[in-house]
Amino acid sequence: MNEFFIPRLGHTVWESVPRLGAATRLLLGGLGAVGNRHFSFRQWLREVYGLGVLSLALMIVAAFFTGMVLGFQGYYALVRFGATSALGTLIALSLLRELGPVLTALLFAGRAGSALTAEIGSMKATEQLAAMEMMAVNPLAWVVAPRLWGGIFAVPILCVIFDLVGIFGGYLVSVPVLGVDGGTFWGQMQSNVTLSGDILNGLLKALCFGLIVTWIAVWQGFSAKPTAEGVGAATTRSVVMASLAVLGLDFILTALLF
């Protein structure tokens, strides 16, 4: 570590303040641009398709495996206390409150967020955004708003599907494979999972994650250096930043909603 480390760190922090400001302006401008006459419902549908529907297969496979692993690991821990009847509850609560929203958001950042950054970055590099401005079409309304709202809309839906498939995967391991009683599995789950406390809590998390991942992805695309390397670097940064943001925000939300 050299003697310039601290001043350089200070400089980096100092520089990141206006960047955060610009990113916030992009977020608010983009969210607010739904009222703009260049906002298009069809573009929004396209983004829900691109971000949501195309991520569905990945989510289902990931959720299925996550649920099955939870079944095995939960059984391993609970069988020592003779409490395998709580396996259903354990799987459902883990997925609904934590793993569903977080894993959905992380996978979304990797699959859809990176694609968003690359797409917008290359639109910038090939002057498509500048051309749009020259044609008097606000990119906030035409490009940013449908993507932001698409992400905010798609992630909670992906999360619900993730939760359900995960619980089904957990059921397949717990009941037919490990021999936990099916009635106990569902009955315990039902009497310990609440709609508002657990299911909606998880969905609220998913909504926040959808917003922050899409925001970071769009921002990274917009602020990418308009070259091939610049777009590549921005894509990597987008996934790394979004993943860290999801985990950090998850801690805050969990503490708040606990």
Binding site: L45, V48, Y49, G52, V53, L56, A92, L96, A154, P156, I157, L158, V160, I161, D163, L164, I167, W186, M189, Q190, S191, V193, T194, L195, D198, I199, L203
Partner: peptide, 23 residues
Amino acid sequence: WVGIFVLLGIAALAVLALRVGNL
């Protein structure tokens, strides 16, 4: 596709609420 996607989401939420949650 988007319609199917939204319906899937609603269906999943309904199943979660009824089968997993205690509604």
